[in-house]
Design a binder for these strands. Structure first.
Length: 582
RNA sequence: GCCUCGGUAGCUCAGUGGAUAGAGCGUCCGCCUCCUAAGCGGAGGGUCGCAGGUUCGAUUCCUGCCCGGGGCACCA
């Protein structure tokens, strides 16, 4: 739609001969007006040309308007304010757009801006040491929406979950599980303060005991020679010694078996949870696989051959300060184990090797200091770090009415994503999570999300769609029938103010899809759909759809049908259902 | 101290350098003999944190300051 005006304007500017040379630095901005009194679109090009042409904006605007070619889509133009050129389009222009909605259907609003661009989108990637909590839900909802938006803009998107299945946390997970199993078998022991205390460990332990009852016997040596646990002693040292003892008494192969069992239980749970939430992945990428197949070593070798590593205090360091990071980073610890960071640069090297044009990582805002480090690693390996985009998601704070809900992973008493979904439903959770900018702290009101009232934005949007479906049901029950061809023929009958407003609104959808994808900002779609719903509800209250007169009735039904299509397309992008009845 | 996100109506927040800064909730007043009142119409409510700068034009961009969230590991 916007293209219509841009094309006309460009032709006019070309006809403006003398201005030609000065056009270079000027961007031809055509924008929707905020107020329909100013027309449908406006351009500030005359004001931009004022300086180079040494003429007043209004005079330039007049020159441009004189050069505008005639078009049946353009009703009139006007010069306004300091020198805006306002464009008023004809009804026919909007009727034409309505037909485009009809013919494009579910693809209306989509474009091919991202043609031939391959994107790897990595999101959530929560540690598989426990169930997903509410914050991960926001990451999941946001990431899935960004994927939908990019796909709608023609990008080829691959969604990936990086599974942190390596490192000390896996040992702690295995130890926690085994100790709980031992407790459940009747042994009394002192559970370490640094181990995972969540209730889900109890369930995993019980399932493991069922499968391997021989793990139930407490080895005499397990709790011997341990440094004191915290808070008086050192919780970390205590835990590490205990892990070493467990490895010893169980044998590393059987201990690894316990870890794998717990890991797979948790991972299955995460997959189910996200699947039910409507968030799917193309790949679950194992961190452990990077060290198993030599990718980490390859990355370290690459860094070494580029002379950006050195040894200090028994560890191997990456000279990140040469690449705009604030300090150098350890890649191999003094105990010989590689760091998480080493895996991560190997992972990004692997992503580049897979031939993507764009890498998008969605991380918690608490990881923002990590961004320059990864970029530094990519630069040092000779990789194009500019294809990496990191989007940060701020925290979620839960409220019940005006009361803040406490969440603490420490005590294991956090609200899981599953609990949240059960309480408020998947649709409400998906919408609430993307309603605000990802860079904004989110206050999530549980009471509001589950209230079945007009206060709840989820219902407001869905209700608009359901109302339209209801009209068509009522139509059938009154055996009136719907003649689409007649409706299309009679679109000029749509003269009510609410109808004109809605026609204009619907035509904005493709621009919103483009904007939301460019900014990776799904909240634009939410706000837009609220506007569509509001325009529709206003129309619904002002005009009767099931008019006796067939011409008007069918024209209105056609507009209602296309409104439902746009609502459906928008809700689909958000991962929210568009019900026919509520 | 450094990095980062924010400060817009009573509350929660939109706002892609433009015209009279918006929405929802809350408050107040109205609207169902008709397609779902899970809806609609109206009223009230603002020094866009403060001070400079760039610009024809700044809530928007830049700088400084004030206030708040978060982060600054040989954890992942």
């Amino acid at each position: 739609m916007k293209l219509v005006v841009e094309t006309l304007l460009r032709e006019a500017l070309n006809g403006l001969g003398s201005a030609q040379t000065t056009l270079d630095g000027v961007t031809i901005a055509v924008e929707r007006t905020r107020d329909l009194a100013h027309g449908h679109f406006a351009s500030n090009v005359a004001m931009q040309l004022a300086k180079p042409l040494r003429k007043s904006p209004r005079d330039i605007a007049k020159l441009i308007i004189d050069q505008l070619p005639a078009s049946e889509l353009l009703e009139k133009t006007a010069i306004a304010g300091p020198g805006f050129i306002n464009f008023y389009l004809t009804d026919a222009a909007f009727h034409q757009e309505l037909l485009r909605i009809r013919s494009s259907g579910a693809a209306y609003g989509h474009n091919d801006n991202g043609k031939d661009q391959r994107v790897l989108l990595e999101f959530v990637s929560a540690n598989p040491t426990g169930p997903l909590h509410v914050g991960h839900g926001r990451h999941a909802a946001y990431g899935a929406c960004v994927a939908n938006l990019l796909s709608a803009n023609g990008f080829e998107v691959r969604k990936e979950y990086y599974v942190n299945d390596a490192g000390r946390q896996m040992d702690i997970l295995g130890l926690s599980t085994w100790l709980r199993l031992l407790e459940q078998a009747g042994n009394s022991l002192s559970f370490p303060s640094g181990a995972y205390r969540g209730n889900y460990i109890l369930d995993i332990a019980a399932a493991l005991q069922q499968q391997q009852p021989e793990l139930s016997e407490l080895p005499a040596a397990l709790f011997t020679d341990l440094p004191a646990d915290g808070p008086d002693g050192n919780a970390d040292e205590h835990l590490d010694a205990l892990i070493a003892n467990a490895n010893e008494s169980l044998g590393s192969e059987r201990f690894r078996g316990v870890i794998e069992f717990a890991l797979n239980s948790i991972l299955d749970d995460i997959k189910d949870d996200l699947g039910e939430f409507g968030v799917s992945y193309d790949e679950w990428f194992s961190e452990k696989s990077l060290s198993d197949d030599g990718a980490v070593q390859k990355a370290l070798t690459l860094l070494a051959s580029n002379n950006v590593t050195y040894e200090k205090e028994g560890a191997v360091w990456f000279r990140a300060t040469d690449y705009d990071d604030e300090k150098d980073r350890v890649v191999v610890r003094d105990n010989g184990r590689t760091t998480y960071f080493a895996s991560d640069i190997a992972y990004h090297l692997n992503k580049v090797d897979r031939g993507f044009n764009k890498l998008i990582d969605i991380w918690g805002s608490d990881h923002h200091g990590y961004v320059p480090r990864v970029r530094a690693g990519m630069d040092a390996m000779g990789q194009p770090s500019e294809i990496l985009e990191v989007d940060l998601v701020q925290f979620v704070v839960l409220f019940r009415g005006s009361e803040k809900v406490q969440m603490s992973t420490r005590s294991g008493e956090f609200i899981t994503l599953r609990e949240l979904r059960q309480e408020v439903g998947d649709d409400a959770a998906r919408l609430f999570f993307v309603m605000r900018s990802n860079e904004q702290h989110l206050e999530f009101d549980l009471d509001l999300a589950k209230s079945k009232s007009n206060e709840n934005p989820v219902y407001y949007l869905q209700y608009a769609h359901a109302r339209i479906a209801s009209v068509f049901r009522e139509l059938n029950s009154q055996s009136l029938g719907y003649d689409e061809a007649l409706g299309i023929e009679q679109l000029s009958r749509l003269n009510a103010g609410q109808e004109k407003t809605l026609l204009v609104r619907l035509s904005q959808f493709p621009e919103m899809v483009e904007l939301a994808a460019r900014q990776k900002a799904p909240q634009h779609i939410v706000h837009y759909l609220k506007d569509v719903a509001q325009d529709f509800h206003a129309w619904y209250n002002a005009c009767l759809f099931l008019e006796d007169e067939a011409e008007l009735r069918n024209a209105r039904l056609f507009l209602a049908q296309q409104t439902a299509q746009v609502m459906r397309n928008g809700l689909t992008l958000l991962g929210v259902s568009a019900p026919d009845s509520m």
